[in-house]
């Protein structure tokens, strides 16, 4: 119940704030931060609960973005349809990655997911219809209700963020999550208990992929432009993985905390210092957390709470 009150509150702020006369930059930067909330939350369903480290968020994000562009250019589809199409494509690719888990584990799985990024990028570079390597300029449609398209996109991504967190929470607290945690610890033992490991991994991969694909859908409209190099950028890997690691991977709240912290910090540093400094800060933060707080901010929080309650 507490969760749903929080979710309703977050939704109200996400949808309502862009209606108010607040500085446009807030939404411009906030959009990116919320994109990372969706990406990190989606990544954590597979990486955090099941322990399969996916280095391929840019591939999923990218396939979502390109699916949206194709739907827009081909049919003039509205944003909602673009997002649904992107989620479908991301989910389908996730299912494929799920089949990989049959044979690949640990570092080998991680490497295979990196390969998917390059395959996707190469495909898009060579596809004229979506602009190839030079990219494609997009004209934003008219927007109603909101004062600008960016404000509307902020509201949309806010809804997606709340939805993906709700999905991740459901997975975590259900028997799906319990089974995923079991196979993270020992896949063989889980199988021996009658946990349908392959089916659970497919569900996790598909869900994770669909959410990451959906996160990519509004990006081309946000930039009014799409181009392969920046769409399939490894920065999305670092952003999703980093947010989950810094926030804490064992709980749905971890990726939110991590993404908001990391995303805001990146935005602030990019504006105040430089884009290069921003990369350095993320790197240092990751090293510090992996060494000093492998359970993330959530883990630290729990430790402190545990101490005071004793």
């Amino acid at each position: 119940m507490k969760f749903w009150i929080g979710a309703a509150l977050a939704l109200a702020i996400g949808v309502g704030l862009p209606l108010l006369p607040v500085n446009e930059y807030v939404f411009y930067a906030g959009y990116v931060v919320l994109t990372y909330v969706v990406l990190a939350t989606a990544w954590n369903i597979l990486g955090g609960y099941a322990g399969y480290v996916n280095f391929g968020p840019p591939a999923f994000f990218g396939i979502g973005a390109y699916a949206a562009v194709v739907l827009f250019k081909w049919l003039g589809a509205p944003l909602g349809v673009q997002i649904a199409g992107a989620a479908f494509m991301g989910g389908a690719m996730g299912f494929g990655v799920g089949l990989l888990t049959l044979r690949l584990r640990g570092i080998f799985f991680a490497i295979a997911t990196v390969a998917i990024i390059f395959i996707m990028e190469t495909l898009m570079v060579n596809w004229r219809y979506v602009g190839g390597a030079t990219g494609l300029q997009l004209l934003r449609p008219q927007v109603e209700l909101y004062a600008s398209y960016t404000r509307m996109l902020f509201a949309v991504i806010a809804v997606m963020a709340v939805a993906s967190v709700a999905i991740a929470r459901y997975v975590q607290e259900s028997w799906i999550g319990r089974g995923l945690r079991a196979l993270r610890d020992s896949e063989e033992a889980a199988e021996g208990c009658g946990v349908p490991t392959l089916r659970l991994k497919l569900v996790a991969c598909t869900l994770s992929g669909a959410l990451m694909g959906a996160a990519g859908a509004p990006m081309p409209m946000y930039l009014s432009f799409i181009e392969p190099a920046s769409t399939f950028n490894l920065a999305y890997t670092i952003g999703s993985l980093g947010s989950a690691i810094i926030g804490g991977m064992s709980h749905w709240a971890g990726p939110i905390v991590g993404a908001i912290l990391l995303g805001s910090l990146q935005q602030i540093i990019t504006v105040t210092i430089s884009n290069e400094m921003n990369v350095l800060v993320v790197g240092v933060l990751l090293v510090v957390f992996v060494v000093a707080a492998p359970e993330g901010i959530l883990g630290l929080f729990r430790k402190v709470l545990g101490r005071t309650s004793k």
Binding site: W175, R178, G179, R181, A182, R184, D185, S186, E188, A189, A190, G192, C193, G194, V195
Partner: peptide, 30 residues
Amino acid sequence: IVDLGVAMVPEGRRLFPRLTVEENLLLGAY
């Protein structure tokens, strides 16, 4: 096969070490 009423205590125990005792038990009833 588990549904038919067959269960195994694997060699070397093969518990889920990072899960609690109770969660280990719940997984036995998956």
